[in-house]
Structure formats: structure tokens, C-alpha cells
């Protein structure tokens, strides 16, 4: 752990917030996390049935980061994320039907079946997409943040990626220029302790990702990424600072991915014991306990909520299965945007 006494910008690590939201807000955050999990469990099943192809990276076990982080942002704040994007898309309220159809490669998919799992996007929701080149999307978020600054709009932009991406050059170029330009950028690193099969300590010269932010004079904080309320709070705070003109902000959220890196990962790099142990820190179960304790939630609330989520996930599957594949003519569309005719 980093020595907080010697590094002024780093704030204390994990916090255990008491319930900082209303009962309704709390139940909504819980619902989003459960939806992400059930959506992905259904997708996982469909994948094993051969209905979904390619690379699919599941978010199960990490749900609190996306849900908490986006709860701390305004709906028009710009989000750019990596390929592990299902959680963020659902938390930004993209339609589960259109997302599942995208996984199936159907015409009704959110990107008409041209993107797939790694490339969900909906610009109307300021969700600028999942990107599949590690670190390649971080500069885009710098640009989006700059566009907000340039146009005097109160938006912030958020770049989301994993621990592994902090080792690539584009990460460093982006942090440096974002700081020099003082743009309203929030860098959110999901430290799930592995980049594919490489543990953080085998890939990163420093164990704490925040150390890298400090090198660029960017305020940084570590947070328990399995605590949805703590996530929400650090994001609220970071967004407030960035919106106030204080420049880029950095959040390192600790979590653990329960599934393999992507479908079909034999997981030789970690033990079953380790995975089982980490599963005891389930962000959903932990939050249920908090809701029971602090928000007068009942098992009934959860049962009703689960039934509702089950229905949504089942409907998404049904929608995806019954949707048509894209027309062959779609192969040729969207290579170029229509050119202006007045210039």
C-alpha cells in the first residue's frame, strides 16, 4: 500500500459508507446490479449454446463499479469504456433487448449487429462505446472532455479500463496531456487484479495504479469497487472536482472478476480456492445486507426485484432469438458517413 503520509494527493483507501442514498435509490442500484448479472448469465448460456460468438468478456462480480460510478454521474456525462462493457451499457439504461440482440448479431442490435459484445454504444445516451484495443479509447475520452471544456458545457468525460491498460503508452500520453490541458476527465481503473492471466504484480512496476496518476499530478483515490455506494461517492466527488475546473481525477476501484477473462478461458493462472474466496465479497450480497440493515428493505423486495429482472432478461433473449439477422445489403452500409452536400 502506498504511504498516504508522503503522498498528499492520495486519499485514504477503502471506505465503508453508511447508506448515503434513499431506500428507493438503493433498491434501484441493487436492481441494476442484479440485472447486469442475470443478463450476463443468460448471455453466457446462449454463448455455450453457440448462439453468440467471438470474444465476450463477462462483468460478473464487478457490477458495483459500473452501477455505482454511473450513479455518481449526470446522464449526459460522456462515457467511454473498454470491451468489458455490458455492465456500463445496462447501467446507462441502454435497452437490454437491443444489447442482447447485438450479442446475437441481429439487425435489431444496438449497433445493428456490426459491433458485438465489445462494441455496445448509444451516443444519444452519451455512451460512446466499448473499445477493444487495450488503452486505445483513453485518448478519445481526453478529446470528449476537451470538447466539453471548449464549448463551456458542464459535462465531464469518463475513461474506463482495467489494471492491465495502465501499462500501455496511450494511458500515459492521455494522463499527461489531460493534465496539461486541465480537461474534465475522470479516469476509472477497474483493478480486478489480472490482465487476462497476468497478475498485476507480474505486469506493473508499481502495485497501486494511483501511483501512476500521481506521476502526472492527478488527484487519485482507491476505493472498494465491490461497494456500490462507495463507488457512487467517489464518482460524485471526482465529477464535482472535474466540473469545477480542477482537471482530471483518477479512481482506482478494487474488484475481482468471477469468470474467465473471456469465454473459454481455462484459468490456469489462478486457483479455484482464490476465486471462491473472492466470491465471498459479492457486491450484490453485501449490498443486500446493507439495504436490509439500513433501508428497511425486506426479502420480499428482493424477491419481487429478482422476478422482474428475470422477466427482463428472458424477454431480451426472446427478442434476440426472434429478431432477424441483418440484411446482406447491410454489409456495405455505414463505411462512410453521408457527405455534406452544401460544401
Amino acid at each position: 500500500m502506498i504511504n498516504t503520509a508522503t503522498v498528499a494527493n492520495i486519499q485514504p483507501a477503502t471506505r465503508d459508507a453508511t447508506l448515503s442514498v434513499t431506500r428507493e435509490q438503493g433498491l434501484e442500484l441493487w436492481r441494476q446490479m442484479v440485472l447486469i448479472r442475470r443478463f450476463e448469465e443468460r448471455a453466457e448460456q446462449a454463448y455455450t449454446e453457440g448462439k453468440i460468438g467471438g470474444f465476450m468478456h463477462l462483468y460478473i462480480g464487478e457490477e458495483a463499479i459500473a452501477v455505482g460510478a454511473l450513479a455518481g454521474l449526470n446522464p449526459d456525462d460522456d462515457v467511454v469504456t473498454h470491451y468489458r462493457d455490458h455492465g456500463y451499457a445496462l447501467a446507462r439504461d441502454l435497452a437490454p433487448n437491443a444489447l442482447m440482440a447485438e450479442l446475437y448479431g441481429k439487425a435489431t442490435g444496438v449497433c445493428k449487429g456490426k459491433g458485438g459484445s465489445m462494441h455496445f454504444a448509444d451516443p444519444r445516451k452519451h455512451f460512446w462505446g466499448g473499445y477493444a484495443i487495450v488503452g486505445g479509447h483513453i485518448p478519445l475520452a481526453v478529446g470528449l472532455a476537451f470538447a466539453a471544456q471548449y464549448q463551456n458545457q458542464p459535462r465531464v468525460a469518463v475513461a474506463i479500463f482495467g489494471d492491465g491498460a495502465t501499462n500501455i503508452g496511450m494511458f500515459h500520453e492521455s494522463l499527461n496531456m489531460a493534465k496539461v490541458w486541465n480537461v474534465p476527465l475522470i479516469i476509472l481503473v477497474e483493478n480486478n487484479q489480472y490482465g487476462m492471466g497476468t497478475a498485476v504484480q507480474r505486469a506493473s512496476a508499481v502495485p497501486d495504479m494511483i501511483t501512476k496518476a500521481l506521476a502526472y499530478n492527478i488527484p487519485a483515490i482507491q476505493v472498494d469497487g465491490n461497494d456500490v455506494l462507495a463507488m457512487r461517492e467517489v464518482m460524485l466527488n471526482a465529477a464535482q472536482n472535474a466540473r469545477r475546473g480542477e482537471g482530471p481525477q483518477f479512481i482506482e476501484a478494487h474488484t475481482y472478476r468471477w469468470r474467465g477473462h473471456s469465454m473459454g478461458d481455462p484459468q490456469r493462472y489462478r486457483s479455484k480456492d482464490e476465486v471462491e474466496k473472492m466470491k465471498t465479497r459479492d457486491p450484490i450480497a453485501r449490498f443486500e445486507n446493507r439495504l436490509l440493515e439500513y433501508a428497511r428493505a425486506t426479502q420480499d423486495d428482493f424477491a419481487r426485484g429478482r422476478a422482474e429482472v428475470e422477466r427482463v432478461a428472458a424477454e431480451a433473449i426472446e427478442f434476440a432469438e426472434t429478431s432477424p439477422f441483418p440484411d446482406p445489403a447491410e454489409l456495405y452500409t455505414d463505411v462512410f458517413a453521408p457527405e455534406v452536400t452544401n460544401g
Binding site: 444496438v110 456490426k114 462494441h119 454504444a121 451516443p123 455505414d334 458517413a337
Partner: peptide
Amino acid sequence: FYMFGGQF
């Protein structure tokens, strides 16, 4: 433009 289905 292509990858995101012509959205932007």
C-alpha cells in the same frame, strides 16, 4: 461509423 452501426 461502421463498428457502431452508423450511429456516429
